[in-house]
Amino acid sequence: MAPALAWLTALMVVPCALVLALAFFRRGTYGGIEYTFTLENFGLVFDPLYAGIFLNSARIAGTATLIAVVIGYAAAYAIAAAPRRLQPVLLFFAVLPFWSNYLIRTYAWIVLLNREGLVTQLLRWFGYTGEPPSMLYTEGAVIAGLVYNYLPFVILACYAPLSRLNPELAEASRDLGASALTTFRRVILPLTVPGIAAGAVFVFVLSIGNFVTPALLGGGRFQMIGNLVYDQFLTANDWPFGAALAMALIVIMLLVLMAQAIAADRASGHAAEARSNADG
């Protein structure tokens, strides 16, 4: 046990604590670090320019999360409704792309969306003759890339509670006169909230700190927090500010995880209610 814990402490806890400490120092004149205490790096995080990038990142990550959850839930629902023996196979193939290289999956979208890419070719084939549409280097491309990369995880997270759902509950609800929609909204959905919450948190946290997707599919035009941190460390050479940004990212992550814990807690209350609704 000890060697593993020592490894994690030396190469994760200590470096992260170092970054936290770094955030309280001043940037030196020539890009180094000046060891005087300051809070101005955190002040800078709330500067309208950078706060705007935070809000932008949250909006892009939020949109990607919403789309991924809707598609992922529908897919998980369909898998859970498939013949029993097919379910493991379907689930395996739904998750498989997730385990291939992230960079390559993102690159695949460049191949699809670039001006002479497959989408343009398809449009031409259907008789489109105008200028190729610009799809790459847009916010839409970044969102598509994020949804594509993280969808498998949402399917996996939503499948677990959906596959354990007791069909008698839905039957009881319908027997009592509830429409299919009401049954879904009042019985099925509340019981599967933990899966949705787990999937959503995962997509949101990984999206908001993402560096590769905005850099490749946004073409550097859509800065997100991850890119901003990268720039502070590798181009602007303002490590203290980069450290403050990284800490802000960690705080957002912790807040989202807390929200998930609360949602899961509430869901267990709602689940009991949903059961009593269905039982009559």
Partner: peptide, 27 residues
């Protein structure tokens, strides 16, 4: 605390661990 320590590397944003290690090694 132990659970958090083991769970952290799986959830911590890559970019944060990356800059933390860069700072650590260069310091």
């Amino acid at each position: 605390g132990l659970e958090a320590l083991i769970f952290a590397p799986m959830i911590i944003p890559d970019i944060v661990l990356a800059i933390a290690l860069l700072s650590f090694f260069s310091m």
